[in-house]
Design a binder for these strands. Structure first.
Length: 303
DNA sequence: TTGCAGGGGTCAA
DNA sequence: TTGACCCCTGCA
């Protein structure tokens, strides 16, 4: 079957998307944008998206940059879901060619050419990135897993039980005491406060797409536990605003070390990215983030 | 073994 | 502008 220019095949309870360019599971699932994907073996990632447990791998055909995406436990009915989730609409080769004019980005892109920005659920991103504040990735993943295990719906995959990410309505009914077990700590209070407000105003990613990036940032920061960084992450990783440029410590380090050659404030870095990368800032951020973290750019060694 | 920074920030004073 | 916030990990 053909859907929007891509050929989809079903084989052995797997969905295969033929001839996809710019797709590398390691680059995609390990660039800090998602918390419910984990490596199973080399090049194979297990993840939970909506009410589906799947394994995703990539088999190159013509050359390294083009091949088939193989999604287990999925079929042709899900073609639209994955087309959207993996942002197959966007021509990453085109974006990379524009960004590569900058020498530093050219290096970062060469390092992880298979990055794609996933279009994830807006409310899931909102709660997940509140949990991410002043936290480390393994702990963020553990906290989210704890919450899903208690409040999500049960799914079974290969004989093992997994859980969906709870809806915002479920979070809205909880108290911070209910979340205390999850080790989200001081973020419990933010989560329930934000969930109640999000449910009340029924805010969606679609609503935010209709207003400017600056306005969307302002709306987002009305939620408890959502400052500039978390707001940018939610907007970018739910596919609402691709010019969002989340500035975390890694991005701050890489911009300071490679571009500015001096220490800078978060605000200065945000302004720099806006001028330098414009509407492609979100994509640039992902290449730089991955490059910085994998190579430990800008880390000061202890005396 | 213990102790203590510090982490993919945000809030409040 | 700065300290406090949960709590877990890594390092000395």
């Amino acid at each position: 079957m053909i859907y929007k220019g891509y050929e989809f095949q079903e084989n052995d309870e797997c969905l295969i998307i033929k001839n996809v360019k710019d797709f590398n599971p390691t680059h995609i699932f390990d660039c800090g944008q998602c918390f419910r994907w984990g490596k199973k073996e080399y090049g194979v990632y297990f993840g939970i998206v909506k009410d589906k447990c799947v394994e995703v791998s990539f088999k190159s055909t013509k050359n390294e940059s083009e091949g088939d995406v193989i999604i287990s436990n999925s079929g042709l009915d899900d073609a639209k879901l994955w087309y959207n989730y993996f942002d197959l609409e966007t021509d990453y080769s085109l974006i990379k060619n524009i960004l590569k004019k900058d020498n530093i980005l050219a290096k970062a892109i060469e390092y992880a050419p298979g990055i794609r920005i996933l279009k994830q659920d807006f409310n899931e991103m909102l709660i997940s990135f509140i949990i991410s504040a002043n936290n480390s990735i393994p702990r963020i993943m553990k906290t989210i897993e704890n919450i899903c295990n208690k409040y999500g719906d049960e799914l079974t995959y290969k004989g093992k039980v997994h859980f969906t990410f709870p809806s915002i309505e479920i979070f809205a009914k909880l108290t911070s005491e209910d979340l205390r077990f999850s080790s989200a700590g001081f973020r419990c209070h933010y989560i329930v406060h934000t969930a109640k407000l999000a449910e009340e105003c029924r805010l969606s990613g679609d609503d935010l797409m209709k207003i400017s990036y600056a306005q969307a940032l302002e709306v987002m920061q009305q939620f408890r536990g959502v400052g500039p960084k978390v707001a940018d992450c939610v907007l970018l990783f739910s596919g609402v605003k691709m010019e969002a440029f989340p500035v975390d410590v890694w991005v701050k380090r890489v911009i300071e070390a490679l571009y500015l050659k001096k220490s800078a404030t978060f605000k200065e870095i945000t302004m720099f990215a806006d001028v330098k990368f414009g509407l492609l800032a979100g994509y640039a951020q992902q290449y730089l983030f991955y490059f910085a973290r994998e190579n430990k750019i800008g880390i000061k060694k202890r005396e």
